[in-house]
Design a binder for these strands. Structure first.
Lengths: 340, 340
DNA sequence: CTGAAAGCGCTAACAA
DNA sequence: TTGTTAGCGCTTTCAG
């Protein structure tokens, strides 16, 4: 109880100096086995717990890295974090998570907080709101590793790990075409985020490559949520030019679309629906939702690997790479068009 | 770039001392407005960012609190964390998350890591494996707030926030009985965790109160997952004494049960199924899953409130409370028995 | 192999 | 209202 034991207590108990204790504890080689053993034993006896703060203050390394994500509630981000953690664990790095909740303000605060906490590096996936990215520049200025994943920004000269989002939009659309759908709508966010724009381009290109028309009325800019999905689907299905399939911005939106379609008795796969992200529920709703797998675990692993590489270079930003992963179509019932 | 600016740089620039700078920056009252303004301006000009590590080392307060959960992938825990964060934000506390992944070893490591990081307090929900809780005692010894939520341990004399799990088991069972089910099975974890035992007792008591027999063969001890749900349901439905409803240990397990029941053409609500936790997907699977809401947000809020109370007492453990929340049945299709 | 001592950046008595 | 000064607990030269 009472006061915490420090290396001074250990030193006093053994009649040696703190420097010796420090060295013994940190595995310094030039220490006699006897001393080391004595120190370790005494440390245990006194229930010593190192104050990492002090050590970090002195050494300048906290061995903590900050991860900023929109929300851990999305399965995709939770999985990434999980993989970052396990990829970094053996190197002694801990992860602290900061949620932006899709707000730039929170994101700015997150960077500030993490930097003040002296994290050794930051990984981030940007909020939907984020346009200006100057808050991230501070990290680079401090010469600390910054890695952007999934929702990235091109103006920042930092490593990125992303999905090939153009391809994601393309293969999702092509999959629907292959299944026999011809009038394919696309629902996306109103925010100007690279990955969503890329997907949209992929969608358009796929249509063109298949000699299908790109119709403005089939492209819905809105929010991404179950509610937005219902709303958008309602709008689409009431229009004169009803689509026969929908590429939804994410699985939540796709779920909303499905709910609306069920209500109006056009249950998929009568109208095809495909989402993005392969959320936990997607395989279990009825009909099962086809979706694009974004390889969260691989993305997390790459983040961890990249960080370790950067931290071991004098200049983390020498030789900055952009890793792009390939999307995979997960075909389920919602796009398995029946012969009509 | 280059070197980080410290309060010394600001002091030098203004020809005052660091103490004045420190005071100006921390909102100390006895400071002339002129000085304060000058300091703040200079700080901004020099792009000053405080080193919280140094401040924490000196003051003994990091304003960081650690939260240990089995996994953020469970919607329930993600929601709790979310609410803890928002409940603490205004008081200037930040949350760092540590996942045990249901392993005691990780949990022990988590406590150690967080303590070494000098967090101001810890909130935890125990892993399924955890039996011995001595690693938590260290937190209490250091006189730092420890709050246990949901998966708690009674031997620790610390505040707890839980659901009334006996009641949860009871109302889940009673709900099925009210719907007309009579042969109700119960699937739970093999691990000796209080909340699961309590639910089991609630289940048994509900049966007794309704003059229904408690059958050993209707109580399945296993894991909690989709796979375990399928497996357990298979076992139950092959037995000579087939149940007509199942209380599953959580929503994932319930989902597994539903999948198996569909396969053998006894789709709920023909056989009733109810889960626990109201996961994100539960409302969207087919049939919609009835479940017990565990009031994650309220639990998170109470954690935050409790922490603030404890941190403001000289002895955090004076007047230790146990807050118990009431479970709520969320009735959906999976238990809406049709008249036969 | 071990000790002495400086100092990481900040806070907080105590003085002035 | 401001300055002086002594650390917080640890690491790390530099000597010995």
């Amino acid at each position: 109880m009472s006061k915490k034991t420090t290396i001074y207590d250990i030193a006093k108990a053994l009649n040696i100096t703190v420097s010796t204790v420090s060295r013994a504890l940190s595995g310094f080689p030039a220490i006699s086995e006897a001393t080391r053993k004595a120190v370790i034993e005494t440390a245990e006896k006194l229930n010593y717990s190192p104050n990492k703060l002090a050590s970090a203050l002195k050494s300048g390394k906290t061995h903590i890295i900050g991860v900023i994500v929109p929300s851990v509630q999305a399965h995709f981000f939770a999985s990434i974090i999980h993989c970052i953690e396990s990829g970094l664990k053996d190197s002694g790095y801990r992860v602290i998570i900061y949620q932006s909740n899709e707000s730039v303000e929170n994101e700015i605060n997150g960077v500030k907080t993490l930097l003040e906490a002296q994290v050794d590096g930051i990984m981030a996936s940007m909020s939907l709101e984020t346009q200006d990215v100057s808050h991230f520049e501070e990290i680079v200025k401090q010469n600390k590793p910054l890695i952007l994943f999934d929702r990235v920004n091109e103006t920042l000269a930092v490593p990125t790990i992303t999905l090939d989002d153009f391809k994601a939009g393309y293969v999702a659309t092509q999959h629907l075409i292959d299944q026999g759908y011809r009038k394919i709508a696309f629902m996306t966010t109103i925010h100007q985020i690279k990955i969503f724009n890329d997907r949209l381009e992929g969608y358009k290109t796929a249509l063109k490559d298949n000699n299908l028309p790109v119709l403005d009325e089939h492209i819905i800019f809105g929010g991404l949520s179950i509610k937005d999905g219902r709303f958008g689907a309602g709008k689409l299905m009431r229009s004169k030019n009803k689509p026969d399939a929908v590429v939804a911005g994410d699985d939540f939106t796709a779920l909303g679309v499905i709910k609306k379609l069920k209500e109006i008795n056009q249950t998929p796969p009568e109208v095809g629906v495909i989402g993005f992200a392969n959320e936990a529920f997607s395989a279990y709703i009825t009909p099962n939702l086809s979706t694009i797998d974004q390889h969260a675990s691989q993305m997390g692993m790459e983040c961890a690997k990249m960080f370790l590489k950067m931290i071991n270079q004098q200049n983390p930003y020498q030789d900055t790479k952009h890793i792009v992963l390939d999307p995979t179509v997960i075909e389920r019932q919602s796009t398995t068009k029946l012969p009509s």
